[in-house]
C-alpha cells in the first residue's frame, strides 16, 4: 500500500457548449489532488474550483460511481476509461497518475454518439438498437411456465451471463478505431442466443439489431480487439463471432 499523497496536475479537457457549437480543448491547473481520490472526484474538485471562480463547471456523465450503471464515459489520455483496465472511469483512481502529469480528457468520439455538452454524449443509439430486438417477446403474466421447467446447461447460462454483464457504457465504440458497436450488439445477441428463451426470435432479433446498428452510423468491425481490452466488464470477442454466426444463419 502506498500512502495517499497530494499531486498537482494539468488537465486538457474538451469543452463544448452544446451540440451545435464547435468545441475545443481547454487547459486547467489543479493542485492538491489526493491520490486516494477517484478520477471523478478529481473532476468534482475541478468543478468546485471553477464554480468558486464563477466559471462554468465541466459537464460529464456519471451516476452510480461503482462501475455498474455505465454512465461515466471519459476518454482519458487516449484510452476509454483511462489507463487502468477492467474498470470504468468512476473506478479509476488518481494514484494511477503522477505529480506534474498532463491529462487529456475527451468525450467518446462517434458519429452515433454526438456530443451534447463538454464530455457528455448522446448514447441513445444503444437504446434504439435494444428496442429493435434486444428482448424476448413475453408479456407480463403470473402464468409463464415455472422457472425450472426449462433446464439451461450451466455453461450456457454462465456464458449468457457474461455477455449480459455489459453495462452499455460505449467504451467499445469509443476505443474502436472504426467506431464499431459490434461488441455491444454481439453481447446482447449472444445473451439471447445462448438461452432457450431467446431462440424463438433469434432470426428476427439479429437481423433487426444489426440493421439498426448500421442505420445509427456505427463503423464496421475489423477485429482489432481494442473493444475487448477496454471493456470494463471484459466482454469477449467470442460474442461478436457468435453474432456473426447468428447473422449468417439468419440471412441464409
Amino acid at each position: 500500500m502506498s500512502a495517499a499523497k497530494n499531486i498537482n496536475i494539468t488537465l486538457k479537457i474538451w469543452r463544448q457548449k452544446n451540440a451545435k457549437t464547435k468545441g475545443g480543448i481547454e487547459t486547467y491547473k489543479l493542485d492538491n489532488v489526493s491520490t486516494a481520490s477517484s478520477f471523478l472526484e478529481m473532476l468534482d474538485q475541478l468543478n468546485e474550483q471553477l464554480v468558486n471562480d464563477r466559471k462554468e463547471p465541466v459537464a460529464f456523465d456519471h451516476d452510480c460511481r461503482e462501475g455498474i450503471c455505465g454512465s461515466c464515459s471519459l476518454y482519458i489520455n487516449g484510452r476509454a476509461h483511462g489507463p487502468d483496465i477492467g474498470i470504468t472511469t468512476c473506478q479509476l483512481h488518481m494514484r494511477m497518475f503522477n505529480d506534474g502529469d498532463t491529462i487529456f480528457v475527451e468525450p467518446w468520439r462517434s458519429k452515433a454518439f454526438p456530443v451534447i455538452k463538454d464530455l457528455v454524449v448522446d448514447r441513445t443509439a444503444f437504446d434504439r438498437i435494444q428496442q429493435a430486438g434486444g428482448f424476448v417477446s413475453v408479456n407480463t403474466s403470473g402464468n409463464t411456465i415455472d422457472a425450472n421447467s426449462l433446464p439451461v446447461p450451466k455453461d450456457d447460462a454462465d456464458k449468457a451471463f457474461m455477455a449480459a454483464a455489459c453495462i452499455g457504457c460505449g467504451a467499445c465504440v469509443a476505443s474502436c478505431k472504426n467506431g464499431s458497436a459490434m461488441l455491444f450488439v454481439g453481447a446482447k445477441v449472444s445473451q439471447y442466443a445462448l438461452l432457450p428463451q431467446g431462440k424463438v426470435e433469434a432470426t428476427e432479433r439479429v437481423l433487426n439489431m444489426v440493421r439498426q446498428m448500421d442505420e445509427e452510423g456505427f463503423g464496421n468491425c475489423t477485429n482489432t480487439g481494442a473493444c475487448e481490452i477496454e471493456c470494463p466488464k471484459g466482454i469477449s470477442l467470442e460474442n461478436i463471432a457468435r453474432m456473426n454466426r447468428e447473422y449468417l444463419k439468419a440471412s441464409l
Binding site: 413475453v138 407480463t140 403474466s141 426449462l150 433446464p151 450451466k154 454462465d158 451471463f161 428463451q197
Partner: peptide, 25 residues
C-alpha cells in the same frame, strides 16, 4: 405470494440467473 411469479417472468425474459450443473436455478 407473487415472489415466485417474478422469477418465472424474469427467466422467461432471458435473465441469466446462476444455475447448477443440472441446469436448474
Amino acid at each position: 405470494e407473487v415472489s415466485g411469479s417474478i422469477i418465472d417472468q424474469c427467466v422467461a425474459q432471458g435473465v441469466p440467473f446462476a444455475r447448477e450443473y443440472g441446469g436448474m436455478l
